[in-house]
């Protein structure tokens, strides 16, 4: 058995329940989109809003139909939120306590006694975990792409829907591995906190961007996208597959992959110098 196969088995054995739940959420979204025609409704709703039609000028039948569909839309949005959170959480959890946990438990000595480079060894295991993660995220992506391909959908929209969870999941695993390499034992929990805080603070900074950029806070506002988890940038990057390519978002996503890989490498070099970290 090689590292890739062993890691794949490990990832599926330990995380298959979460993977199944997220997959079922995606399947529910696909079923809803295809059987309840949510996509055409969204297009109708956009046209309705664009026309800026006063609500009292709509017919009672139209309002009743909209009311019913709004309930389904709320349910779909809820499932979507859970789905994306689940895909991200899978990325965070699939890494396990790869580095920090093994250092503190002493299990690191199973590998540290051997002559191979410890950073390279953990990098190999991380790469294998990302392959396993990618395989699962692709399955997640297919479910939301199927949802997007429902009535009123298009290939571009489906591809965009497919790319978003895959990118989020891979980036979440990079964050989790980086944190663990830096010695954070509860790396998945810290990753959730980082992503949720980024999600909450991102819009706040966007709203404050104008006043911040005019004052002495300008450098702070400029740095924010490079520090917070790029959830919005991942969305914009994925949207590039259905509309115009967003080079800024693409660059930001690549930057975050590079940032967390660099942090992980720095942490791993420290681990190689002192493998054991007994409490």
């Amino acid at each position: 058995m090689n590292v890739l196969k062993a890691t794949f088995q490990f990832a599926l054995r330990t995380r298959w329940k979460l993977a199944l739940v997220v997959f079922l959420l995606g399947a529910a979204l696909a079923t809803m989109a295809r059987s309840m025609e949510i996509n055409p409704f969204l297009i109708d709703l956009q046209e309705f809003m664009a026309a800026n039609m006063p609500a009292d000028s709509a017919s009672p039948d139209q309002l009743q139909s909209f009311g019913k569909m709004m309930g389904l839309l709320a349910l779909s949005t809820f499932l979507r939120t859970l789905f994306f959170f689940g895909a991200t959480l899978f990325g965070l959890l699939v890494v396990g306590r790869l580095v920090a946990g093994e250092r503190t438990s002493g299990a690191v000595m199973l590998w540290a006694q051997h002559p191979g480079s410890l950073p390279v060894f953990y990098a190999k295991r991380y790469a294998a975990l990302q392959v396993a993660n990618l395989a699962v995220q692709l399955a997640f992506g297919i479910t939301v792409a199927t949802a997007a391909l429902g009535p009123g959908g298009s290939a571009g929209v489906a591809l965009s829907a497919f790319v978003q969870p895959v990118t989020l999941g891979l980036l979440a695993a990079a964050v989790s591995f980086g944190l663990s390499s830096l010695g954070v034992r509860r790396n998945a929990f810290a990753g959730v906190a980082y992503i949720v805080l980024s999600h909450l603070m991102g819009p706040l900074f966007l709203e404050l961007e104008a006043p911040l950029s005019s004052g002495s806070w300008e450098p702070v506002a400029a740095v924010v996208p490079y520090v917070l988890f790029p959830g919005q940038a991942v969305g914009d990057f994925a949207a590039g597959f259905r509309s115009g390519w967003d080079w800024e978002a693409t660059g930001l996503v690549l930057y975050h992959f590079a940032l967390w890989s660099a942090l992980a490498w720095f942490g791993l070099r420290r681990v190689a110098r002192r493998p054991l970290d007994l409490p």
């Binding site: 058995m1 090689n2 590292v3 196969k5 062993a6 890691t7 088995q9 490990f10 054995r13 330990t14 396990g96 306590r97 946990g101 093994e102 438990s105 002493g106 299990a107 000595m109 199973l110 590998w111 051997h114 002559p115 191979g116 410890l118 060894f121 190999k124 295991r125």
Partner: peptide, 24 residues
């Protein structure tokens, strides 16, 4: 080690495969 700690979730085959990767 005095207390042989094995990382959880791994089969014996998997642990041996990791050891081989560490040895080269």
């Amino acid at each position: 080690a005095e207390d042989t700690v094995m990382p959880s979730g791994w089969s014996c085959d998997g642990i041996l495969a990791l050891a081989v990767a560490a040895v080269g």
